[in-house]
Amino acid sequence: KTVHVNGVQYDFDNPEQAERFAKEMAKKAGLQIQFHGDQIKIE
């Protein structure tokens, strides 16, 4: 899974790890999470 945070890309082999990371980042920055198939976007 790939997580995009403000244009920066983070790759994870483990989907659960990717989602946990995305939730942490979104919570910290007060941003929205969008799921697009294999990609998670935080903007």
Rank of each mutant, 00 (worst) to 15 (best):
F12V: 01
A26K: 03
Q17A: 12
R20N: 09
E19N: 08
F35C: 13
I40W: 07
Q32I: 13
K23F: 13
Q39I: 14
V5D: 00
Q9A: 11
F35V: 09
E43Y: 14
D11M: 13
G37C: 11
K28V: 12
K1I: 14
Q34C: 15
T2M: 05
K28S: 08
A26S: 05
E24D: 05
G37S: 07
F21Y: 04
G30I: 04
K28N: 08
A22I: 11
Q39S: 12
F12M: 03
G7N: 02
Y10C: 10
Q9S: 09
Q39E: 10
A29R: 10
A29M: 15
D11R: 14
G37L: 05
E16F: 09
V5P: 01
P15V: 11
K28M: 12
L31S: 06
Q17N: 05
G7V: 02
Q34I: 14
D38K: 03
K41P: 06
H4C: 15
F21H: 00
N6S: 03
M25I: 10
I42N: 05
D13Q: 05
V8I: 10
E16P: 00
G7F: 03
D11G: 04
V8E: 03
G7T: 02
A22F: 10
I40K: 03
L31R: 02
H36G: 08
Y10L: 01
A26H: 01
F35W: 14
M25R: 01
A26C: 14
N14R: 04
A29W: 15
D38Y: 07
D13G: 03
Q17Y: 03
D13Y: 02
D13R: 02
A29K: 11
D13P: 07
G7W: 03
Q32V: 13
L31E: 03
A18W: 08
A29E: 11
N6M: 10
L31W: 12
E43L: 12
R20A: 13
F12Y: 01
D38I: 08
R20I: 11
N6I: 02
I42P: 07
Y10W: 05
E16C: 14
A18H: 00
E19I: 15
D38T: 10
I42L: 13
R20Y: 09
F35E: 05
Y10R: 01
E16T: 05
A29S: 10
G37R: 05
E24K: 09
F12W: 01
I42A: 05
V3H: 02
E43F: 14
F12G: 01
T2N: 02
Q32M: 10
R20G: 03
Q39H: 11
A18S: 01
A18T: 01
G30R: 03
Q17M: 09
K27E: 12
K23I: 13
K23E: 08
L31H: 05
E19T: 10
V3S: 01
N6Y: 09
E16N: 04
V5H: 06
A26I: 04
G37M: 05
G7R: 03
V5W: 14
Q9N: 04
D11F: 15
H36Q: 11
G30W: 09
K28Y: 13
G30Q: 07
K28L: 13
A26T: 02
D38M: 09
H36E: 11
V8S: 03
F12A: 01
Y10P: 00
M25D: 00
K23L: 14
K1E: 02
F21C: 05
I40L: 08
P15R: 11
V5C: 15
R20P: 00
Y10M: 02
P15C: 14
Y10H: 02
F35K: 06
L31Y: 10
A29I: 11
H36M: 13
K1H: 12
K41F: 15
I33E: 03
K28D: 05
E24H: 09
Q39W: 11
P15H: 11
Y10Q: 00
Q34G: 06
A18F: 06
G30E: 06
F21P: 00
A22Y: 09
A29P: 10
G30F: 07
A26R: 05
A22S: 03
T2V: 08
K27M: 13
G7I: 02
E24W: 14
D13E: 11
E24T: 07
R20S: 10
Y10G: 00
T2L: 05
E43K: 06
V3D: 01
K23N: 07
V8R: 11
Q32R: 10
L31M: 11
H36N: 12
A29G: 07
N14S: 13
A18C: 08
I42H: 06
K23C: 15
I33V: 10
E16S: 07
H4F: 15
Q39V: 13
F21W: 10
H4E: 06
